[in-house]
Design a protein around this nucleic acid. Structure first.
Lengths: 225, 225
DNA sequence: GGCAAAATTCTAGCACTGCTAGCCAATCGA
DNA sequence: TCGATTGGCTAGCAGTGCTAGAATTTTGCC
């Protein structure tokens, strides 16, 4: 039965080809240019084959969005581990403590490290959105029917939130629910990203960086008096 | 020359009728149902008359969005003045100080009052978005070509931001730019509203209220240790 | 009042969209 | 080798935003 396996493999390849074509087309010419005809032309098949892979155009957008969430989770994970490892090395030289990385260290140095990690992740998040505007659009403005908070939400969405929870959670106050705190931090970041992208905030050199820094500072309780 | 004036008046009425029809249709059946044909049917004219009033469908959406910004500004102004007046009355009985309302009062009572005002405005903002989902969509996801930060941005947009500035600005840290602080606060609020609306945050009784309270608390430096 | 001119509204249609029914050819199991 | 099944294609449907040109109404003038 090797033949049917090969056919299934080819089908999966074409499936991925459609998603990739949609994403590239959207990123170069915007989602308005992503029509079923242009998509079919691009993958060198006729339109109806799209509907043998996806229920409709919306399902294709959803697939692109899912890819985006997976990559976003990976990007934030990278930024987090990079910084925490760097600061852990610094901490080792200072030789203060060696608790688990996942456990919030309540020392001053630990808090500083987590603040740094959070800032790095926030910057990575903003950079990701800026580097893949169409992808971010698919994730947050086009694919609105992707369930999130419930049990049956797709894995990439859960992964992405868990990743954010790992950075935001430890910085929640003792009386705060870490998940609520993460939701607030994520939402704020998302708001900054979208409003900046639609030119609804002052445009200029370091304005967005300033905003992100200010947000993270306030969230972590680093407030000037 | 009273005739041409009457005609112009009637034209303005029909102009407003189009905007209102678009808004109502969007609010009851979603923006997907707002087509030029249905709009024309609704105002009891043929399609082309729409184009004698607006450059295209996008221009109609823009008009709706502008109306939304005007109303949003009004709603936040109402929430702000209501609370500040109430707390000013309380302050008067305590007889501590009587500075100008626009000037940030650096007393403990003054800060508490501003915190309360900010919370009230944030709640009003979220309530507005929840009560007019299609309108909010027009303002932030459909009419993306509305210039904002620049000089030539429409007056309602400026007004809305000034209104937010009046609540957020006084609570900025001594080293913070009030405008930057306002941009951050507004973005965070916007993020909470949109993600909540798309069911991307946990759905339940007071979750959104909790998130808003947490956000405002952190922004104002009221951080638990 | 009657009539050409000007402004306004409508009919009809264009090029496009997402999506699907039904035909036609290649592949499969016997 | 031959029917049955699968897979892809052509052609077309209903609907979209928008517009050219016809038809109608209103205007200004004699």
């Amino acid at each position: 039965m090797g033949i049917s396996q090969r056919r299934e493999r080819e089908r999966a390849q074409r499936h991925q080809l459609i998603v990739q074509a949609a994403r590239e087309l959207a990123e170069t010419e915007g989602w308005g240019a992503v029509t079923t005809r242009r998509l079919a032309e691009r993958i060198e098949y006729s339109q109806p084959v799209l509907y043998s892979h996806f229920a409709g155009k919306g399902a294709i957008v959803n697939a692109v969005a899912l890819e985006g969430f997976a990559e976003l989770a990976e990007a934030t994970r990278l930024a987090r581990t990079k910084v925490t490892q760097a600061t852990q090395a610094t901490q080792a030289t200072e030789a203060t403590e060696t608790t688990q990385a996942t456990q919030p260290t309540r020392t001053a140095a630990g808090e500083r490290a987590q603040h740094a990690a959070l800032l790095a992740v926030a910057r990575a998040y903003a950079a990701f959105a800026r580097a893949n505007p169409a992808l971010y659009d698919a994730m947050f403005t086009l694919a609105t029917d992707l369930s999130f908070g419930s049990m049956d939400s797709p894995q990439p969405l859960k992964d992405a939130f868990v990743e954010l929870l790992a950075v935001f959670g430890p910085l929640a106050g003792p009386d705060d629910d870490p998940e609520t705190f993460t939701e607030v931090g994520w939402s704020a970041l998302h708001g900054l990203v979208t409003l900046d992208r639609d030119s609804r905030l002052r445009d200029g050199d370091g304005y967005q960086d300033q905003r992100i820094a200010l947000l993270i500072a306030r969230l972590t309780g680093d407030v000037p008096k």
